[in-house]
């Protein structure tokens, strides 16, 4: 993976004034690094600050403080210099509803001085050429999403930013978008995909950053994060759970019961567990190393971080960002 950064933010902060005049923090000092190349998942629950961060990077909203750069160019100051290398879809695709897909793209192409002949090429790339003359407002959500991707391709960008790209899509559409993102990354592009659907990102992302309440809480390679989260838990299915727990606990291992199962934490080898139980004439029905997915890691990391996470925070609780390299 390249050490060059496509996106970098330091101390990025954005607050909004709510209806009662109080300041609500949308992004609270975010440090984010997205390396050049590959698919980078930008994860966080709804309200975590993903879209706000993307909007700030694209110059659509102003940051209260902090710095941002795209390919080393400070934004928003140098955004005009670098915007040609960046294609973005922020939330839902938004085009002129009464214009056709082709007309919408033609206007965008002319705005960036791209040849208008490119319009049909990108429409063909996303499979919309036969519906290019139809009005945008008549498109299905999937078609709108594909048109938005076609729009980003007009620039032949080095960095593509997809904000919740599969919202509202059917399974076929989701798979299609996933394939498109992977294909772009395989062609050497950098793809930043923000999502709260972790299983979807896990299948396509090379690296991820997880944020909650506008702060980075973990980042790194997906495999490393999952490996760090797994920490070698083994699930043991056995008939006499209390006695087995006693036996395994006596070995000094951390053992938890979960219904008719025991969970042995701490990276104990399954063979050692079998040996310890068999020595006491206890025989396992089932012995499974627990596979931790990104969702489990995410829920573990974001638990107790309040709004923009999945549980309210205990008073004063705060955890530093975890980097896969450190944790694993």
């Amino acid at each position: 993976m390249s050490t060059e950064l496509a996106i970098s933010t330091r101390g990025l902060r954005k607050t909004y004034r709510n209806r009662r005049g109080q300041r609500a923090v949308a992004v609270g000092g975010l440090d984010l690094d997205v390396p050049v190349g590959g698919v980078h998942g930008f994860l966080g629950p709804n309200g975590a600050g993903k879209t706000t961060t993307i909007r700030m990077l694209l110059g659509l909203i102003r940051a209260d403080s902090g710095t941002m750069s795209l390919f080393g160019q400070t934004v928003p100051e140098r955004l005009p210099d670098v915007i040609g290398r960046v294609g973005a879809i922020v939330e839902q695709p938004k085009f002129f509803p009464s214009f056709s897909g082709r007309k919408n793209l033609t206007m965008l192409a002319r705005a960036i001085d791209a040849p208008t002949t490119l319009v049909d090429v990108v429409l063909s790339d996303v499979g919309l050429l036969d519906r290019a003359g139809d009005r945008y407002k008549g498109y299905s959500l999937g078609m709108k999403q594909r048109l938005a991707i076609a729009a980003t391709l007009l620039k032949d960008p080095d960095l593509l930013i997809f904000d919740e790209p599969t919202n509202g899509l059917d399974p076929a559409g989701i798979r299609e978008i996933r394939g498109t993102m992977r294909g772009l990354a395989d062609r050497g592009k950098t793809v930043l995909v923000s999502s709260h659907i972790l299983a979807e990102v896990e299948q396509v992302a090379d690296t991820v950053s997880i944020i909650a309440r506008g702060e980075l809480i973990a980042s790194g390679r997906v495999a490393d994060l999952i490996g760090a989260g797994a920490a070698g838990t083994v699930r043991v299915g056995i008939a006499d759970v209390p006695r087995a727990q006693q036996v395994l606990g006596a070995q000094g291992w951390t053992v938890r019961s979960e219904g008719r199962y025991l969970l042995v934490d701490g990276g104990v080898a399954p063979a050692t567990i079998t040996e310890a139980l068999a020595a006491q004439r206890l025989f396992v029905d089932e012995l499974v190393p627990v596979r931790v997915d990104l969702e489990s890691v995410f829920l573990d990391l974001t638990a107790g971080r309040g709004p923009g996470t999945h549980a309210p925070p205990p008073a004063g609780q705060s955890r530093p960002a975890r980097h896969a390299e450190e944790a694993s």
């Binding site: 694209l58 110059g59 659509l60 973005a88 922020v90 938004k94 085009f95 002129f96 729009a151 620039k155």
Partner: peptide
Amino acid sequence: SAEFSTGAIGNWLTFAPQ
């Protein structure tokens, strides 16, 4: 105003940010 109400202005500014 139609550009704002449809949200197309946001897309437009990602092509022409000045």
